[in-house]
Lab assay of single mutants.
Amino acid sequence: MQNSHSGVNQLGGVFVNGRPLPDSTRQKIVELAHSGARPCDISRILQVSNGCVSKILGRYYETGSIRPRAIGGSKPRVATPEVVSKIAQYKRECPSIFAWEIRDRLLSEGVCTNDNIPSVSSINRVLRNLASEKQQMGADGMYDKLRMLNGQTGSWGTRPGWYPGTSVPGQPTQDGCQQQEGGGENTNSISSNGEDSDEAQMRLQLKRKLQRNRTSFTQEQIEALEKEFERTHYPDVFARERLAAKIDLPEARIQVWFSNRRAKWRREEKLRNQRRQASNTPSHIPISSSFSTSVYQPIPQPTTPVSSFTSGSMLGRTDTALTNTYSALPPMPSFTMANNLPMQPPVPSQTSSYSCMLPTSPSVNGRSYDTYTPPHMQTHMNSQPMGTSGTTSTGLISPGVSVPVQVPGSEPDMSQYWPRLQ
């Protein structure tokens, strides 16, 4: 039975679970980093996980050691009161100082060594604690504590007292930064006198190289990059290397530039699409467009005044059976039934097929058609009795279509119309 579990990581490298990497692998990681390889490249070359490479390099940059820390136990506290007071002093002298600059000053002034120097995250935590204590304490208590930490007896009751030896409130920041720059020169002199001055200088240079600022491109470089971006948004590694040799930039910087440029292009394309949609959409909808001609068919113009009344309900007709019959029939052209047409008796099958359309009241044959006459024609229609054979009435077949029909004066039988409509 094995005491430890061995495995293979996602890159194909072998590791022992819970145990640190061998010293030979750690040394190779540092050597590759000094030669300029990126952590992701080191991870692929040595088949070590990216997190492990970053952790080893980060500890090497901070402490200069590649040895693993002790497994188990607690780390001794490195942010001692003396170190905290120095950090507060540096922050007062130059409020814009960075944590890694404070760390360098602690090393250069001999406050800490490589073994007990606090990390950048520890210094940031100390600065946050100082800021929170400043908010919790009152103004007087804060000034007393700062005077105690600074070891001075001057008056701290006013704002300019934060910067000793100065009279203009805006000047101390520059003086403090100048003092810090002077301390940086002392850093070089002190570290050069040490035993491991060369190694420390190499480590600091490598650290500065990794902690780079934003790349500033010249106009020629920007023009070359934009020209390549117009050709393709995704250049391959050969195109990037050719462009890197042409404009004297690292291939990694060119790759990052193209990634950022593609993101910018997507944002601009989104804005262009929004403007295009806004320009195509009308600002207001016309009133006429809300009524579609496919839904509402136009009603033909009436030929006679009587045809303006298109349904039985508008003429005072309360018989719903006839109203439904007229509205359900398709529109037909106007025609006239003459008196000489043969009077065919209704076929029983045809009569039964339209039995649902006729009223059940037996008085329908005896009703006159003056009910369908509009009010303004009552006088004219009353002067001509319906009993004469020459009287013409208008029957409504569908809305908007008038059918003048000659009705025999002897017997106005409704059943004569249905064979004609089939």
Rank of each mutant, 00 (worst) to 15 (best):
Q2T: 09
Q2S: 10
N3R: 08
N3F: 09
S4Q: 09
S6H: 07
S6D: 13
S6T: 07
S6R: 07
G7N: 08
G7M: 11
G7L: 12
V8H: 08
V8Y: 08
Q10Y: 05
Q10K: 05
L11N: 06
G12R: 04
G12M: 03
G12C: 04
G12P: 01
G13F: 01
G13N: 02
V14F: 10
V14T: 07
F15L: 02
F15G: 01
F15E: 00
V16Q: 06
N17G: 04
N17P: 00
G18I: 02
G18N: 01
G18F: 01
R19S: 04
R19N: 04
R19G: 01
P20T: 01
P20V: 01
P20W: 02
P20H: 01
P20C: 02
L21V: 06
L21M: 04
P22T: 04
D23W: 11
D23A: 14
D23N: 06
S24I: 11
S24M: 13
T25N: 05
T25W: 05
T25D: 06
T25A: 15
R26M: 01
R26P: 01
R26H: 01
I29L: 06
I29R: 01
V30W: 04
V30G: 03
E31G: 14
E31F: 11
E31L: 10
L32H: 09
L32E: 03
L32Y: 15
L32S: 03
H34Y: 09
H34Q: 12
S35N: 11
G36V: 03
R38E: 00
P39F: 13
C40L: 05
C40H: 05
C40V: 14
D41E: 09
S43T: 04
S43I: 01
I45T: 11
I45W: 12
I45E: 15
Q47M: 13
Q47L: 10
Q47R: 06
Q47H: 09
V48K: 02
S49N: 03
S49K: 03
N50T: 15
C52T: 09
C52D: 01
V53I: 07
V53A: 02
S54H: 08
K55S: 04
K55V: 03
I56D: 02
G58Y: 13
R59L: 14
R59K: 11
Y60A: 03
Y60K: 03
Y60D: 04
Y61P: 00
Y61F: 11
E62H: 14
E62M: 14
E62W: 03
T63L: 04
T63H: 05
G64V: 00
S65M: 09
S65K: 06
S65F: 06
I66K: 03
I66M: 08
P68E: 00
R69N: 13
A70Q: 10
A70F: 13
A70N: 11
G72R: 00
G72I: 02
G72Y: 02
G73C: 00
G73H: 00
S74T: 06
S74H: 00
K75F: 05
K75G: 04
K75N: 05
R77H: 07
R77A: 02
R77F: 02
V78M: 04
V78Y: 04
T80C: 07
P81H: 12
E82R: 09
E82Q: 07
V83P: 02
V83H: 03
V83D: 01
V84S: 08
S85N: 08
K86F: 10
K86D: 07
K86W: 12
Q89Y: 13
Q89F: 11
Y90E: 15
Y90A: 15
K91S: 05
K91N: 04
R92N: 15
R92W: 09
C94Q: 14
P95L: 14
P95Y: 13
S96W: 10
I97Y: 02
I97M: 06
F98V: 15
F98H: 15
F98Y: 11
A99Q: 07
A99I: 02
W100F: 09
W100L: 05
E101A: 14
I102W: 01
I102Q: 15
R103K: 10
R103M: 06
D104S: 12
D104W: 00
D104L: 07
D104H: 13
R105D: 11
R105P: 02
L106Q: 01
L107C: 09
L107T: 08
S108T: 11
S108G: 09
S108A: 15
S108V: 11
E109G: 13
E109L: 13
G110H: 14
G110L: 15
V111Q: 14
C112E: 06
C112T: 12
C112I: 11
T113Q: 12
T113H: 08
T113R: 06
N114W: 14
D115P: 08
N116K: 04
I117L: 07
I117V: 06
I117R: 06
P118N: 01
P118T: 05
S119Y: 00
S121R: 01
S121L: 02
S122I: 00
S122H: 04
S122A: 02
I123W: 03
N124A: 03
N124K: 03
N124D: 01
N124P: 03
N124Y: 14
R125P: 00
V126R: 04
L127Y: 13
L127M: 06
L127A: 15
R128V: 02
N129V: 04
A131M: 12
A131V: 10
A131S: 11
A131C: 09
S132M: 14
S132F: 12
S132G: 15
K134Y: 14
K134L: 12
Q135F: 11
Q135E: 09
Q135V: 14
Q135H: 10
Q135I: 11
Q136R: 10
M137F: 09
M137D: 15
M137G: 12
A139W: 11
D140N: 10
D140M: 09
D140Y: 10
D140G: 10
G141H: 15
M142R: 12
M142C: 09
M142T: 12
D144C: 10
K145V: 07
K145M: 09
L146W: 08
L146M: 07
R147N: 11
R147I: 09
R147L: 09
M148I: 07
M148Q: 08
M148C: 10
L149N: 14
N150I: 15
N150A: 13
N150M: 14
